[in-house]
Each structure stands twice: as structure tokens, then as C-alpha cells.
């Protein structure tokens, strides 16, 4: 089951944070088709956000075809997202090695993140986050 964390100071709208975190979980395989998303009640009880915000996020996910609401039962994952590299995938191993080299080269965490973001921006320009 996914657990949402709301960052109040990120400047990103709360419902967008829910959508992003759900997609992230789909990519990482933490959520798989058939899995049930937490009920709005559970999400708002844990995060103290407005229930309509959760519904808005779930509607957005439904609109994108990622989940479906089954009346009286809850919201379920319909399909997973992208080719999410699992923990033991070659891509992940390469990135792991790259990060280790960056660390060995004396780069700070922020430097590495900036570098990574810059490369991401170059290759995925125009793609929705």
C-alpha cells in the first residue's frame, strides 16, 4: 500500500504531489495492476489534507487511464507505468556505478543532483513530469 507524504513548502499543488507520488510508485513497481489505492478517508486521516484534493488526484489518475474507481469498493490500479527498472535491472546498476564514481570524485550530493537534473532536462525536454 502506498503512503503519501505531502510537502507543504514545495510550491507544487497538493493534488499534483499525490499524482506524482502515485506514478512514482507505479514506475518503481510498488503498485501493480489490481492493487487498491488507499481510500480517501485513509489518505486524509494520515495527511490532514482536504478529501476533495484526494478525489481530484484520483480523478486525474483515472483520466490518464492508470486507475479505475469501482463503486463501493475503492480505486484500483489498471496498468503500471513505463519500463520501470526494478532494483536489479542493468540500468539501475549503471546508475549506481555512476553515482559511486561521482562520490569518489568528491562531488557533493547537491552537485550530483544538479548534474543529474541537467542531463534529464536535456534528454526529456517537453515530457510531462
Amino acid at each position: 500500500m502506498i503512503e503519501y507524504r505531502i510537502d507543504r513548502h514545495s510550491g507544487v499543488a497538493t493534488y499534483v504531489q499525490l499524482v506524482q507520488q502515485t506514478k512514482q510508485a507505479l514506475r518503481l513497481g510498488l503498485l501493480r495492476p489490481g492493487d487498491k489505492l488507499p481510500a480517501a478517508r485513509e489518505v486524509v486521516e494520515a495527511t490532514a489534507i482536504n478529501p476533495n484534493t484526494v478525489l481530484k488526484a484520483y480523478r486525474e489518475l483515472e483520466r490518464e487511464g492508470l486507475v479505475e474507481a469501482r463503486r463501493g469498493m475503492g480505486t484500483f490500479v489498471r496498468r503500471s507505468l513505463g519500463a520501470a527498472p526494478a532494483d536489479d535491472s542493468p540500468l539501475r546498476a549503471e546508475l549506481d556505478g555512476w553515482a559511486a564514481r561521482a562520490h569518489a570524485a568528491g562531488l557533493e550530493r547537491d552537485d550530483v543532483a544538479a548534474l543529474f537534473t541537467a542531463v534529464l532536462d536535456k534528454h526529456f525536454q517537453g515530457d510531462p513530469s
Binding site: 481510500a39 480517501a40 478517508r41 478525489l55 474507481a69 463501493g72 475503492g74 480505486t75
Partner: peptide, 8 residues
């Protein structure tokens, strides 16, 4: 709003 949850 209650559609996503089963009322206890």
C-alpha cells in the same frame, strides 16, 4: 465523496 470508501 463517499463513493471511494465503504461507509462503515
Amino acid at each position: 465523496m463517499t463513493t471511494l470508501t465503504t461507509p462503515s
